Simulated assay, not measured.
Amino acid sequence: MALSVADRAIGAIIGAAVADAAAQPMHWIYNSDRLKEVLSDLEPCPEFRPQSANPFYRRTTGEQTCYGDQAYVLLESLSQCGDVDVKHLTKRFYEFFGPGTVYDLTLNDPYRKKGGPKAILPIDGPWRNGSLKAFLRNVDAGKQESGCDVDCQIDGVTKLAPVVAMFAGRPEMLEKVESAIRVTQNNDMCVAVTLTAARFLEHFILKGPDPNALDSVLAQLNDLNRKNPQELDRAVIAHISQVKENVAKASHQLIPAVFTNT
C-alpha cells in the first residue's frame, strides 16, 4: 500500500521513538569487546534487550534515553503551540529535565563539582547529558541564549523528527529546526550536522524510499543558493563523502580506524 506524505511524517516520529527505546538498554557501551559480547546473545534481534547492559544508567526497557525524551518534549511543544515557540520550548525542557524530575539525581546535578566522591555506576534512573546540564545552568543564570555552546553530542539529530515532520516541504523547515536545536545546543557544528540530517529526513518524508537520497542532499549542500547555509557545511560535505566511500565496509573495520571518537 502506497504511503502518503502524512503517513511518512507520522512514521518518522514513531520510528524515532521506537528506535530510541529499542536501543536504550545498550546505550553508551563504548567498549567494543563488551558490545560484541552483549550482541552475541541477542543476534539477530538485539532490540529491546530485557535487561539493561548500559554501563552508565538503568531504565526499564521501553523507556527513552535522554535523547528520546528531548524529542518527546519537542513534539509536545509543537503540538501545543503549532510552531517552534522558543519561550515555550525552553520552559518545557526545564520542567521535564530540571529540579524535582526523574532526571534530578545527585550524579546528574548540573552543579556537581569535579573531584568529589567517585560515582558508582550504573545509576538507577535516567541520565542528564552535558548539553542538558549546561542548558539548566544557563536558564538558572537568566541567559538570553539558553543552549550549550560547547557540547557537541547528537541530541539535535535524534530529536529532529517532530519538527521536520511538521514543516517538511515548507521553505522555513531548516530555520525552524535551527531555532529548536539552539534552545539546548547553541553550537555551530551541532546545528550544521542537524540541518543536514533534517534535509535527509525531509527527502524521505516527501519522496519515500530513494537510493539517490545521499546524492540529492549533497547537491543541496553544494548549492550556493541553498536555504539556511552554515559556515561548516563544507566540513559536513567532506564527512558525508567519506561515509559514502566506506559504506560497503563493516562497522568494525571503520570504528575507530576511520571514524575516530564514534
Rank of each mutant, 00 (worst) to 15 (best):
A2E: 15
L3D: 13
R8V: 08
A12E: 14
I13K: 09
I14Y: 09
A16P: 00
A16I: 00
A19G: 15
A19S: 14
P25N: 10
H27Q: 15
H27Y: 10
H27A: 14
W28M: 12
Y30W: 09
Y30G: 06
R34H: 12
K36Q: 15
V38T: 13
S40W: 07
E43Y: 09
P44I: 10
P46M: 10
F48Y: 14
F48I: 08
F48G: 07
P50L: 06
N54T: 10
Y57N: 01
G62Q: 08
E63W: 02
Q64W: 11
Y72C: 13
L74R: 00
L74S: 02
L74F: 03
L74C: 06
L75I: 07
L75Q: 15
L78F: 02
L78T: 00
Q80C: 03
V86D: 09
K87L: 10
K91P: 02
Y94K: 09
E95Q: 14
F96C: 05
F96S: 12
F97S: 01
F97G: 00
G100Q: 06
D104K: 07
T106L: 13
L107C: 07
Y111P: 03
R112Y: 06
K113G: 10
G115R: 04
G115W: 04
P117K: 09
L121H: 10
W127A: 07
N129E: 15
G130W: 01
G130T: 05
S131H: 14
K133G: 14
L136T: 01
A141M: 07
K143F: 13
Q144I: 10
Q144M: 05
Q144N: 07
S146R: 04
C148R: 02
C148T: 04
C148G: 09
D149G: 12
C152F: 07
I154L: 12
D155Q: 09
G156D: 02
K159C: 10
L160K: 01
A161S: 15
A161C: 08
P162S: 10
P162Q: 04
A165Q: 03
F167M: 05
F167N: 01
A168M: 10
R170H: 11
L174F: 02
L174G: 00
K176P: 00
T184G: 05
T184V: 08
N186P: 02
D188I: 04
M189P: 00
C190Y: 02
C190F: 10
C190P: 01
T194E: 08
L195S: 02
T196Q: 08
A197Y: 01
L201G: 02
L201N: 00
E202I: 05
H203K: 11
L206H: 10
P209M: 11
P211L: 05
L214C: 14
D215F: 05
Q220G: 03
Q220P: 01
N225W: 03
K227Y: 03
K227A: 15
K227V: 12
E231M: 11
E245W: 03
N246K: 08
V247W: 03
V247N: 06
K249F: 09
S251F: 10
Q253R: 04
L254I: 06
I255V: 15
A257H: 13
V258L: 12
T260G: 12
T260F: 09
